[in-house]
Computed example of a mutant assay.
Amino acid sequence: MSTVTSNAGQDQSTLFRGSDTEIALKDEKSVRGTPNKLMPAFILGEELAELADHDERIVVATADLANSSRTRDFHARHPDRFIDFGIAERNMITAAAGMASCGMIPYVATFASFCAILCAEPIRTDCAYPRMPVRIIGHHSGISMGFYGTSHHSLEDLGMMRSIAELTIVCAADANQLRAILRASVDHPGAMYIRLGRGRDAEVYSEVPIDFRFGEAKMLRDGTDLTIIATGSQIHASLAAADTLAAEGKSVRVLDMHTIKPLDVSAVRKAAADTGAILTVEEHNVIGGLGSAVAEVIAGGPAVRFQRHGVVDEFSLIGPPAALYAHYRLDAAGVTAVAREFLAGTGTV
């Protein structure tokens, strides 16, 4: 099944960039991809290969991003169950639906902007509608592509995917949680969108959580003054904010809302009742994503103070990811400041 070639030392990623030889302006490490030890959350190919060792239904595909997604680690161990479609994302999604209809469990990976946004229609019509067990993996989500710009940013993907019926949506906070998500996804019914960061996510879970369940939020810290409901890349920053605020005498609960759909409604309602104040934090437009999902739950319910934090309905600036996180207050210092302002009654969104 593999389509990766080895002519003149090239792999499929090099071929689709139009070069007959290795790229001379980059060293071997750059050409082959950043080592796993420098990208702790990018264990995608490794974990899928482990699962495939015990399940012959699992196949993996990418769209010219085997290095960026580390799915090349899967190819190294299961070359006959790996396909690089080249720059043909829509074809990849539809083909994956076809494979799923034949009893396979396809995991297809590309940049979040290229799958969730570019391929929304085939995800809806070919995967979710017929309930095909296709796992669409959107890596480098949010603003993590930095200076690659708006075409590569994905601040709308959660909102677009949430509007598709019968599609499970889950965000990984770190490598260990990603392992848990992948393990739980194998026999999960229907199509699924798995959102990843850029692979440099700080550790949140010291080991693979054995109690992971789709649709069940995880309380990582209890508190009485405020609940921060965060997802994906913002879990670590939210925990750091809770630690800082604790030193200031504020008790902050932190919920990891890893599953955006189906949302853990009971956890949201309990947080509202227990703390009376909810702040959502996400690397996404404040419209359509986690904040909107939580707002839909608390609307019409008991009075609760509520604020959304993310990118406020604009196309993000272009620059290095770290600078963008600081600018949009999506780093630890920024989330701390936003939570402090919210508690003081000076929040704006």
Rank of each mutant, 00 (worst) to 15 (best):
residue 2 S to I: 02
residue 2 S to R: 06
residue 4 V to N: 15
residue 9 G to W: 12
residue 11 D to F: 00
residue 11 D to I: 05
residue 12 Q to W: 03
residue 14 T to W: 06
residue 16 F to D: 06
residue 22 E to K: 10
residue 24 A to W: 12
residue 31 V to D: 02
residue 32 R to G: 13
residue 40 P to H: 07
residue 56 E to C: 01
residue 58 I to E: 00
residue 59 V to I: 15
residue 65 L to H: 09
residue 66 A to N: 10
residue 71 T to F: 07
residue 73 D to R: 11
residue 74 F to I: 13
residue 76 A to W: 01
residue 78 H to P: 05
residue 81 R to G: 01
residue 89 E to G: 02
residue 89 E to H: 09
residue 95 A to M: 12
residue 108 V to I: 15
residue 111 F to Y: 15
residue 116 A to M: 13
residue 122 P to H: 08
residue 126 D to N: 11
residue 129 Y to M: 10
residue 130 P to E: 05
residue 130 P to F: 03
residue 136 I to P: 03
residue 137 I to E: 10
residue 142 G to Q: 07
residue 146 G to H: 10
residue 151 S to D: 07
residue 153 H to M: 01
residue 155 L to V: 03
residue 156 E to A: 11
residue 161 M to W: 00
residue 161 M to K: 00
residue 167 L to D: 02
residue 173 A to E: 05
residue 174 D to Y: 14
residue 177 Q to N: 14
residue 181 I to Y: 07
residue 182 L to Q: 00
residue 200 R to P: 05
residue 200 R to K: 15
residue 202 A to G: 13
residue 204 V to G: 11
residue 207 E to N: 07
residue 211 D to E: 15
residue 212 F to Q: 12
residue 215 G to L: 14
residue 223 G to T: 12
residue 226 L to V: 13
residue 234 Q to Y: 01
residue 234 Q to G: 04
residue 235 I to H: 06
residue 239 L to Q: 14
residue 240 A to F: 01
residue 244 T to S: 08
residue 248 E to I: 03
residue 254 V to C: 09
residue 255 L to V: 09
residue 259 T to W: 05
residue 261 K to C: 05
residue 265 V to A: 13
residue 271 A to R: 08
residue 282 E to L: 05
residue 287 I to G: 06
residue 288 G to C: 01
residue 296 E to C: 04
residue 302 P to N: 13
residue 311 V to Q: 04
residue 312 V to C: 08
residue 314 E to L: 13
residue 314 E to D: 10
residue 316 S to T: 11
residue 318 I to N: 09
residue 321 P to F: 02
residue 321 P to R: 13
residue 322 A to F: 09
residue 329 R to G: 07
residue 336 T to M: 07
residue 340 R to C: 02
residue 345 G to Q: 08
residue 345 G to C: 03
